[in-house]
Amino acid sequence: MTRGPRLPRLTGNGHLSRLLLPKRLHPVAERVKLKDEGHGIDLFGLDRAGITRGLAVSWWLYEHYFRVESHGIEHVPSDGAAVLAANHSGTLPLDAMMLAHDLMRNRQRPVRIAMDYFVPGLPWINLLFTRAGGFSGTRGNFHALLDAGELVLAFPEGTVGIGKPFSQRYQLQTWRQGHVELAIEHQVPVVPIAVIGAEEQWPQIARIDGLESLGIPYLPIPATPMPLPVKYHLYYGEPIDIPSMFDASQVHDAAAVAEGAEMVRNAVERLIEHGLSERQGVFS
């Protein structure tokens, strides 16, 4: 095919990410399982270059800034669908980033992170997230990913959790039930997770509400220009065996769903208590 002169290529294809990622971590990016739809990308936009970019952006934070320690990752299934449910905090979703990095590195699985509806509408940010495994947290997307046997990470506290005041750190906010409803319907386990450290990483002193017209729910005003170098501990609890406790038909039973959600909430709370009792201090 004859064609005119090409414009210089401005879109990335992973070369820069590979340069930024230490060589010892290249095998991690290559080993992560990806459901390729024929052109190296999956239906939601996850691709190898995005995985590499995600690792390149997060490895230094994971190893040196937040010095992440992972406990009990063997509880995350090595194959097949599961719902992961964690506490959420920190002004920016760095907890999601550290969890995704940990799971890719130590479980060779990409985690599909449910994002609020407004995120896919944000230029560039949507690409950074979706190419590394994020997805718009619609019910239909959850169904499609669980049907495809993926690991889906939900933060049942939602945006309320990430914006919680410092005085309410490690106190679980309104606990949504959708993740358990999906687990019952798809008959998959729920893995409870506690993220220790993130709740102190970036205290907010105020927030500006009423910014929906700009595509964001609010603008946080943090106390420091950068997140604090707190030490992260990620605790993965034993999977809650939803299929043995609930029949798929109970997805319409509000009491059963509420009971399941309470079990997950209690499990996350216990992990948080355990994690807080184990750690030496916020920065160590």
Binding site: F44, G121, S136, G140, H143, A144
Partner: peptide
């Protein structure tokens, strides 16, 4: 609309 899933089923 924004709550539309990325993968569309017939009941969308």
């Amino acid at each position: 609309r924004l709550d539309r899933p990325d993968v569309l089923r017939e009941d969308n």
